[in-house]
Amino acid sequence: MTATATLPTFSPARSLALGIRRVPFELKMYFRAGDQVFFTFLFPTLIYSLFAAVFSDQELPGELTMATYYLPGMIAGAILLSGVQNLASDIAVEKSDGTLKRLGGSPLSPVSYFIGKLGQVVVTSVLQIGLLVGVAVLAFGAQLPTTAEAWGTIAWVYVLGIAACAFAGIALSAVPRSGKTATAVIIPIVLVLQFISGVYLQFSMLPSWLQTTSGLFPVRWMAQGLRSAFLPESWAAQEPTGSWDLWLVALNLGLWIIAALVLSRLTFRWIHKDR
């Protein structure tokens, strides 16, 4: 029959432009979804406020208040929620409600779709962390780091952490069988990870086998990297090896980025395509 007609291919610049165009659209949908705003966006700030209020009179060694102690862990938790919980349930729901099928029938590249999602994750997580830190400082008197080096650490841990969590979220979105079960599948995973990774509980209090287990996942390392920036140097002794091990933080997050990226590339489909 007909020889395949040669058609102009769309340029990568077009995919990028359409991806950027999707960011405000994604943000609009994000902030209009009440459950998303509560369970992902506000959750770390609410939990932090609760903990900081309950333990406000506790003084830790090194003139550390609980308000300051909890902040790095809670920021790590926020990055996890914004990446994994947000994207995994968002994409699973869009897969099951027909949004992805419709996009798959349009000339939108999946690359543009993911640029839109990543843009949404970056903007919402930055706002979310800003809110959390603002509340911590203004309402509970948490101490912020003062050295450029500490802020540099926060910056690279955030960038690697949000990338690892966003890609992990995309990969995890393939797991729920329907949009209705998505949050039921994803929230327990995210919650357990936060408990064993030193977000809600002091990491040094956990049994070593749990510390080792959580060491497989990125949250524990994000929390540890951020603690190195927020806590006094003397607190390094509380970490499993007695030091901050920033190279292990970078290694773990780097491996997660690569593994989750490969996994999402392999599992993502606009629809469940048959043979």
């Binding site: 609009k28 949908m29 209009r32 979804a33 729901v93 869009e94 409600d97 027909g98 949004t99 099928k101 419709r102 029938g105």
Partner: peptide, 9 residues
């Protein structure tokens, strides 16, 4: 498509 669907917000 035959089936409609959208997050709707």
């Amino acid at each position: 498509l035959q089936s409609t669907g959208e997050t709707g917000n």
